[in-house]
């Protein structure tokens, strides 16, 4: 068990899902370090956490794509976190990223290269603490099967999940727990331009509560139960059939 007074670092703290996860950690009493670009614009979110849960919150400027700055960023934090949550992600425009190398690189770097390198760095630090710690990486079901609609994003998220899976094996003998979370369609601004599958859609708060529960029971890979069934079918469809579906 990770003690309730140990700090949690949230990377990409501005998203709706990050906010909902921050609420859950704050409710348990964890101090929070919110990291995002233009950290001074996080003040409303800091106040929110203070008013709701009397949480101790700090905000920190952080750009996931500034890979060379990752180590300094970690070193400059007021405390070493016991939990690191990466909610970093960028959907991009599928058609654009399929043909434009810069657009493709941005999607791949933001969802794969940069967060993986950052979490690798964090894993090293956390494992050294030699007490219970955790890393939570928010991936996506989009990484489980390439779909015409979003396969550049999906490919990056697939890589992210694979990287975390490798890290999990690497650190199996440590007290660091690594959890991959694969949301389906959570109703956030980021999914706003996708066709939402009504009943499979979760509100960010409801989803965050499930993630917390999954962390407590030490899940390795967490899907929402509804998605487990859907993805179970989808990942097992033979490619020659899957390619013809409209999913």
């Amino acid at each position: 068990m990770i003690p309730a007074d140990s700090p949690v670092l949230i990377l990409g703290a501005r998203s709706d899902m990050a906010r909902a996860l921050a609420h859950e950690f704050a409710k348990e009493g964890h101090p929070l370090m919110l990291a995002a670009r233009n950290a001074d614009t996080l003040s409303e979110d800091m106040t929110d956490l203070e008013v709701r849960f009397q949480a101790k919150v700090t905000a920190h400027d952080f750009d996931i794509l500034d890979v060379d700055g990752h180590a300094a960023f970690l070193g400059n934090l007021p405390e070493v976190p016991a939990v690191v949550v990466s909610v970093v992600g960028f959907m991009g425009d599928q058609d654009e990223s399929a043909i434009n190398p810069d657009a493709a690189r941005k999607v791949i770097d933001t969802n794969f290269t940069a967060p993986c390198l950052m979490l690798e760095l964090c894993a090293g630090r956390l494992a050294e603490l030699k007490r219970p710690t955790a890393i939570i990486g928010i991936g996506s079901v989009a990484g489980d099967r390439g779909r015409a609609k979003n396969y550049v994003y999906g490919a990056a998220k697939a890589g992210f999940a694979t990287w975390l899976s490798g890290m999990r094996q690497k650190y199996v003998d440590s007290q660091l727990h690594i959890m991959t979370v694969k949301p389906g369609f959570v109703r956030t601004s980021a999914t706003a331009d996708m066709d939402l599958l009504g009943p499979l859609t979760d509100e960010p708060e409801a989803f965050a509560k499930k993630v917390m529960k999954a962390l407590k029971r030490k899940s390795q890979v967490y899907y929402d139960i509804k998605w487990r069934a859907v993805m179970g079918v989808i990942t097992h469809l033979p490619e020659r059939i899957f390619m013809k579906t409209k999913f």
Binding site: D16, E44, T47, V51, R52, T188, E203, P204
Partner: peptide, 19 residues
């Protein structure tokens, strides 16, 4: 509307919650 859900202030004397 539900994503606009931030809490803004609480006055523990009066019990006034702004959100």
């Amino acid at each position: 509307g539900p994503l606009r859900n931030r809490f803004i202030s609480f006055d523990p004397e009066a019990g006034d919650l702004v959100l």
